Amino acid sequence: MKDAAEFGLNKTPAQLHPVMTQAMLEGCEEFPPHAEDMACDAFTLRKSYIQHSEQLGAVPLPSTLRGAVSTGVLAIQGNSPSVLIDKLGERMAFERSGIRLYDALITKCKSAQPVLDIETLEQFRNDEAEHFSLVRDCIASMGGDPTAQTPCADSAGMAAMGLMQVLNDPRSSIPQCVEAILMAELADFAAWELLIELADESGLSDYIDKFQQARMTENHHMHVMKKWLEQMTLNNQVEALG
C-alpha cells in the first residue's frame, strides 16, 4: 500500500471535459426549473421538515428509586439532570466509536507496511475502552441505565460514521486514517472539557479527577496522532520529490 498520493487518472475535473461541461450548462439554460418546482425547492422542503420534526429522541426517565433520587437532588440544586445524563451518554457512545476506530487502524497497519507503532495504537485503543467503562460506571452510580441511547449519543454515533467509513475503506492510506482519528481525538478532548464542567456543577466529586485524567489521556492521543501525521506527510513529500 502506498501512502503518498500520486498523479494519475482522475475523471472528476470538469476542465478535462469542456465540451460536455458546456453542454450541461446549455441544457440547464434550455430546460430551467418549472415554476411549480421552484415553489418546492430544496430549502423550502428542508425548512418544512425542520419546523415539523420532533427531537432526536429523549433522555429516559429514571427506572430505579436511586435514579429518581439522584435526578431529584440535581434538580433541587438548580442543575439539569437530563443535560448531564445526555452528555454522559454521548461520551460513552463516542468512546465506543473510538475503540472501533483504533481497531480498524490496527487492522490496517497489520495488513500494510507497519509505519506506526502497533503497541502504542493498542494502548490508545485500551484507553478508549477504559474511558467507556468509566462513563458507564458513572451513569450507573447515578441510578441511570448505561444501555439507553440518549439524543446526544445518537448524534455522536452518526457523526462518527463518516470517520469509520474512512478507516474501513481498503483504499484509504495510513495517513488518511490517522487524520480521521485525529479529527475524533480533537472532538473527544473538547467534549471531555465540557463534561468535566457539567460534572463539577452537578457535584460528582467522585468522578472529577477521573474525568480530568481521561482528558489528559485524550490530549496525549491527540498530540501523538498530530505528530505522526506531520511526519508521514513530510516523508511522503520527500519521497515524491526524490
Rank of each mutant, 00 (worst) to 15 (best):
L65N: 00
L65T: 01
L65K: 00
L65G: 01
L65M: 00
R66Y: 08
R66H: 11
R66K: 12
G67H: 02
G67W: 00
A68I: 02
A68S: 03
A68D: 01
V69R: 03
S70T: 11
S70L: 05
S70V: 06
T71L: 02
T71D: 05
T71E: 03
G72V: 07
G72N: 08
G72F: 05
G72D: 06
V73A: 14
V73L: 14
L74G: 09
L74R: 09
L74M: 10
A75C: 05
A75I: 03
A75K: 10
I76A: 11
I76E: 05
I76R: 07
Q77V: 01
Q77K: 04
Q77E: 10
G78T: 01
G78Q: 00
N79A: 02
N79Q: 06
N79G: 02
N79T: 02
N79V: 01
S80G: 11
S80V: 13
S80T: 15
S80W: 09
S80Q: 11
P81F: 13
P81C: 13
P81R: 12
S82K: 14
S82E: 13
S82T: 15
S82Y: 13
V83P: 05
V83S: 11
V83T: 11
L84S: 04
L84A: 03
I85T: 15
I85N: 14
I85Q: 13
I85S: 14
I85Y: 15
D86C: 14
D86G: 14
D86Y: 14
D86T: 15
D86L: 12
K87S: 01
K87Q: 04
L88V: 12
L88F: 12
L88A: 11
G89W: 00
G89Y: 01
G89Q: 00
G89T: 00
G89S: 01
E90G: 15
R91D: 12
R91A: 15
R91Y: 13
M92I: 14
M92T: 14
M92N: 12
M92A: 15
A93M: 15
A93V: 14
A93C: 15
F94H: 15
F94A: 15
F94K: 14
F94V: 15
R96K: 07
R96M: 05
S97V: 04
S97I: 02
I99L: 04
I99N: 05
I99Q: 13
I99G: 12
R100M: 09
R100H: 12
L101N: 00
L101D: 00
L101Y: 00
Y102P: 07
Y102L: 09
Y102S: 09
Y102K: 09
D103M: 08
D103H: 13
D103V: 05
D103P: 04
A104D: 01
A104T: 04
L105M: 10
L105P: 04
L105N: 08
L105F: 11
L105D: 06
I106C: 08
I106N: 06
I106D: 05
I106G: 06
T107A: 10
T107W: 06
K108H: 05
K108G: 03
C109F: 11
C109G: 10
C109A: 14
K110W: 06
K110G: 12
K110E: 09
K110C: 08
S111L: 09
S111V: 03
A112F: 03
A112V: 07
A112I: 03
A112R: 06
Q113C: 07
Q113W: 04
Q113N: 09
Q113L: 07
Q113G: 07
V115Y: 10
V115C: 07
V115F: 10
V115I: 14
